[in-house]
Computed example of a mutant assay.
Amino acid sequence: MSELQMQKDELLALPVSVDLATAGRAFGLGRTRSYELARAGQFPCRVIPVGRKFRVPRSALLEALGIEDTTAGSGPAALCPGPHPQESITLSGPAFSASSALR
């Protein structure tokens, strides 16, 4: 396998978004060609322009490559740690008692 290509385990280990050069490697593209395609609106998956740079969501990259994201913590809950609508929390202890609110 050439240096321009990535293996499935490398792809699944990518962060939530990657730079354009990294995404290009997944498709076997070099940095220059990746930027040419992105500027022309022809990159093989969704690209998000951020100022003069580009970011590529891991989900769009994996989808374009036909790879199912099976990594743990890949859903929306992984992006927003803490309680979610289906979860509840209970606040207890002296800091949360009614009497401490009056002090």
Score class of each variant (00 low, 15 high):
S2A: 09
G73Q: 08
L12E: 06
L4D: 00
F96L: 05
R25D: 00
Q5F: 08
R46C: 08
V16I: 07
V16W: 13
A101I: 06
S2H: 06
R31T: 03
C80M: 10
G93E: 04
F54L: 05
P49E: 03
S88E: 11
G24H: 00
L29T: 01
A23Y: 03
E63Y: 11
T22Q: 04
L11I: 09
R55V: 06
S88G: 10
P15F: 15
P15I: 11
E68R: 09
L29N: 01
A77C: 14
V50W: 10
A95K: 04
G24C: 05
A60F: 13
H84M: 13
S99G: 08
A78M: 11
H84W: 15
A78D: 10
Y35G: 08
Q86N: 13
I89L: 03
L14G: 02
A77M: 15
Q86T: 12
S17I: 03
S92C: 07
L102D: 12
A95H: 07
P49W: 06
A60G: 12
E10Y: 07
L20S: 00
L91Y: 01
Y35Q: 12
D9Y: 08
L4P: 00
G28R: 08
I48N: 13
F43L: 05
T90A: 11
S97G: 04
G28Y: 03
S34D: 06
S99A: 12
L79S: 07
R55W: 11
Q86K: 15
P83A: 13
S59Q: 14
L79T: 05
R33T: 01
L79G: 07
M6S: 00
R52P: 05
E68N: 03
S59H: 13
S100G: 09
T70E: 13
Q7D: 03
L29I: 04
A23K: 04
A98Q: 07
P15N: 14
G51D: 07
H84N: 05
L29C: 08
F27S: 07
K53L: 13
F43E: 00
G82T: 12
L91Q: 04
P81I: 04
R31A: 05
D19K: 09
L61V: 11
A40P: 02
R33I: 06
A23E: 01
I67L: 06
T32G: 13
P94F: 02
R39H: 07
T90F: 04
S17T: 06
R46D: 08
S59E: 14
S2G: 09
V16G: 06
T70S: 13
S99Q: 14
G24W: 00
S74N: 12
K53R: 15
A21V: 04
S59D: 15
R52S: 14
A26L: 02
R55M: 12
G66C: 02
E68S: 07
R103Q: 12
P44C: 10
Q86Y: 15
D9E: 15
F54H: 00
V47H: 00
E3W: 05
